[in-house]
Structure formats: C-alpha cells, structure tokens
Design a protein around this nucleic acid. Structure first.
Length: 151
DNA sequence: GCCAACGTTGGC
DNA sequence: GCCAACGTTGGC
C-alpha cells in the first residue's frame, strides 16, 4: 500500500466539502506527472489532504483511494474550465481517481510545522518550487505527519 | 501583489 | 530536438 498527497485550494474544494460528500472524483488534474501518480494508485492507498494557497497551508486530514484511475469527464465538457480539445472519449488524455473522506487531524499539520521537522527533510512537498498537485509520500513521512496531527 | 520555479508550447 | 518565451502555481 502506498501513500500520497492531494493538494487543493479550499476555495475550490475543501476537506469540509469531502466530509459532506463522502467521496469525490479528483477532477481537474492537468499535469502529466500528477496524472501519472494517480495512474499508479491502487484501491486502499491513503492520502494526505492538503490545503494550499491560504494563509496557513496545511495537511488537514486523510483520505483513501476508492476508485483507481478512470477518464476525467471534465476534459470532454466544452463549458468546463478543464476542457481539453485534444482529448476524445475513445482516447482520453486526463484521468482521475475517486477519494473518500478519512479522518480529520486533531491539529492541522501546517507547512511551517513540516519545514521545522528535521525528520521530514527531503519530503517532496518541502522542495523549493514544488508544484505537483498529486505527489507521493514516503511511509516514514506519513507516520511522522500523522504523529504531528495527533491522529 | 510579487516573484521564483517549473511545465508546456512552438519556432527554428 | 533545442531552447526561449510564456503561463501557472503557490508560498510569502
């Protein structure tokens, strides 16, 4: 089983919203590396749910992969901001997984807190200029962040 | 709002 | 296939 990190701007889709929805298709990923990460995901893989582009960016809880990669329907929707004319239903370009709400951290693990943790040196999220919206998390990093979140 | 980092595009 | 220009991301 592998671990991942799902990055989202809470104004676009928040952990709170996932709690209400139960599960959600992770639409809108338009970066090949992030897409390839999703295509590697297996049922039952776990993810950190990370809120970005806010005053205190933070991992706020966990989620679980409940459907492996399947075509992201928004690439075919002309009115969607994620529409991609290069994609055809019989030849999709973009994929998504479905994720389910997991557990909320007792305390969000802020980006600043992660940077201050020596054991997290080398974590992908903390690399300069890191922008991938879906990225792998190493098992030891997962363990440390759950500790910090006091889950 | 600024700007560094990085992926993507497109001319050659 | 190189690489400059451009657009986007996202922390600060």
């Amino acid at each position: 089983m592998r671990y991942w990190l799902f990055k989202t701007e809470p104004s676009a889709y928040s952990f709170e919203q996932l709690r209400k929805d139960g599960t959600t298709p992770w639409t809108g990923v338009r970066n090949f590396q992030a897409r390839n990460n999703m295509m590697e995901m297996k049922l039952g893989d776990l993810g950190l749910f990370y809120h970005s582009s806010i005053a205190e960016p933070a991992a706020v809880g966990t989620c679980k992969v409940v459907a492996t990669a399947h075509p992201d329907f928004t690439q075919f929707e002309r009115t969607s901001e994620y529409f991609d004319g290069r994609a055809k239903p019989d030849n999709p370009l973009w994929y998504m997984v479905d994720v389910a709400y997991g557990e909320e951290f007792a305390r969000p693990v802020t980006l600043a807190r992660m940077r201050a943790e020596p054991r997290l040196v080398g974590m992908a999220l903390l690399r300069r200029g890191q922008r991938l919206s879906v990225q792998p998390v190493m098992p030891h990093e997962w363990k440390i962040i759950l500790e910090l979140g006091a889950l």
